[in-house]
């Protein structure tokens, strides 16, 4: 069965969400939402998705196009306030937060604010939205984003959302809550964790057909490689079928490469 890179990323991410055993998940629009919905439909029926706008629900039938889409809470558990859901994260009740980003550095710090200097931007991006809270306050964070030399950079132009900051104990020293912080990164090329020396991003698995060279040549910093790098299995027919049913309007999977 043919599949696109976007579909592969969503499926790999969904498997990792299942592996994390997270029951309460803070989701943003786009790929994170697709991956979480897939995880809920395929592997973990006890997942609750929580949206920054105040929706709390089980997996939607079809992919919502916004974090405040009626589909995020139709048939769900509760609609409430932003204060309420952000405070859930602040009290340690969000098992996993899902984020994307325009730039990431080796410590999982994320930029969605600006490319170039803030004072004189080359490109102005949307800013934090709820990302700073998702990244600061969730018990752990998974980042889903495309990887290339402009996105994987030694130092992000602006830390919109803190990762492990400068590595080591710097995140805790900054006063950010424990437990929290980046746990995994999923790209179209591989899977990364932060269990390496000094909390640097580390390759733990390759996507099917991807070489180590490709991983390195699509990053502006040298990527550490774990001792036993695995390879992600091809998506199953069932995974693809359900994924395409969730994104039946082809909001994400229609946009290709």
């Amino acid at each position: 069965m043919n599949f696109s890179k976007t579909e592969l990323m969503a499926i790999a991410a969904a498997r990792m969400i299942a592996k994390s055993q997270a029951k309460t998940i803070f989701v943003g629009t786009g790929l994170p939402l697709l991956a979480a919905t897939l995880a809920a439909r395929l592997y973990m029926h006890e997942i609750t998705l929580i949206y920054e706008s105040g929706g709390i629900s089980h997996a939607p039938r079809h992919l919502p196009i916004s974090v405040a889409d009626t589909r995020t809470y139709k048939g769900g558990f509760m609609t409430t306030t932003m204060d309420y859901v952000m405070s859930l994260a602040s009290t340690g009740r969000i098992d996993l937060g899902l984020l994307g980003g325009a730039q990431i550095d080796p410590y999982g710090n994320l930029n969605t604010t600006v490319i170039g200097p803030w004072e004189k931007p080359l490109v102005r991006l949307p800013g934090s939205g709820g990302a700073n809270e998702v990244g600061s306050l969730s018990n752990k964070v998974m980042i889903i984003m495309r990887q290339d030399k402009r996105k994987f950079v030694p130092k992000v132009d602006f830390i919109t959302t803190p990762g492990w900051l400068q590595g080591g104990d710097s995140r805790k020293e900054a006063g950010l809550p424990t437990p929290s912080g980046p746990w995994m990164v999923v790209t179209q090329l591989g899977l990364y964790d932060f269990n390496g020396k000094n909390k640097r991003m580390r390759l733990i698995a390759l996507m099917p057909g991807v070489s180590l060279d490709e991983v390195q040549s699509n990053s502006s910093f040298e990527i550490e490689v774990a001792d036993n790098v695995g390879t992600i299995c091809d998506p199953t027919e069932e995974e693809i079928k359900i994924l395409r049913d969730i994104d039946k309007y082809k909001i994400l999977t229609g946009k290709e490469e």
Binding site: S90, S136, L137, I159, R171, G175, L176
Partner: peptide
């Protein structure tokens, strides 16, 4: 008091205090 913004440039460009 809140527990987000810490360690970030979002804080640096905000009007918050630490």
């Amino acid at each position: 008091p809140i527990r987000s913004l810490l360690g970030s440039d979002t804080f640096r460009k905000s009007a918050a205090m630490q």
